[in-house]
Design a binder for these strands. Structure first.
Lengths: 123, 123
DNA sequence: TCTTGACATAGAGTTTACTCTACATTGTAT
DNA sequence: ATACAATGTAGAGTAAACTCTATGTCAAGA
């Protein structure tokens, strides 16, 4: 299947402006039809979902750009891409750990509030 | 103990400019000495650590501002503050869940790469 | 044919959270 | 007494990631 930018925007939940911006940054590079309109493919769709995953896990655009470059160069860059993902996996692991620690402290604080409210009978 | 802005900056790992900015935004409001220099207290220190925790878990400055307002109003706002923290706790829980899902998908992708590299003997 | 709506580009504007600059004061070591 | 380092204020500048505006093109329906 092929999609216009409008359809693709709905499918991916990315604004039209954002899609053009991503193209400008060489992240998503759809084909063009005879009248120069963007034609997004299913491959673009899968790739866009992956980009969203990288973004949602805190990878900056610059780094995704680098990954996109490697991807465009083909299978000779498989090693390097895997290396990037492995490093990113580590940062993600760390993020989760830190958030879990914060969660524990937050729970302590909430407990403290609960006791304080109890104690001062503001319940 | 009381600290100058320089000392406090070292203690908290927040730049001097950032501390002044936080004060401007009514997040941290140290006393002043006779010559108008900021005097941070240990209470400010504990409060700053907590602000950092809220920030690191994705709470925007605006919301921390609101929390700070309530805090300044005293114990009558304990309920409302606890409510804010409880809501934030939920978002944090959700964040962790989403990141864990991303992690699983990332692991799949890395596995795929590993196989692909193996298969094409680019190892 | 005319108009409308989706699309095109280039470039300006926005938001968040700092970060820095310019310039004036003040406390401290020599 | 003087230099110099830390601090003060006000306001400008920065970076990232969008988001919007102005203006123009083009295919399809009334």
């Amino acid at each position: 299947m092929e999609y216009s930018i409008g359809e693709f925007s709905r499918l991916t939940n990315l604004g039209i402006h954002t899609l053009r911006y991503y193209e400008h940054e060489n992240l998503i590079t759809p084909k063009r039809n005879s009248s120069n309109r963007r034609c997004y493919s299913d491959k673009d769709l899968a790739w866009t979902y992956f980009i969203k995953r990288l973004k949602d896990t805190g990878m900056p655009i610059k780094e995704i750009q680098r990954y996109a470059e490697l991807r465009a160069e083909g299978s000779l860059t498989l090693n390097e891409r895997m290396e990037m993902l492995t490093v990113h996996r580590e940062s993600l692991n760390e993020q989760i750990k830190v958030l879990q620690e914060h969660m524990a402290k937050l729970d302590d604080k909430i407990d403290f509030y609960r006791q304080e409210i109890e104690r001062t009978s503001l319940k």
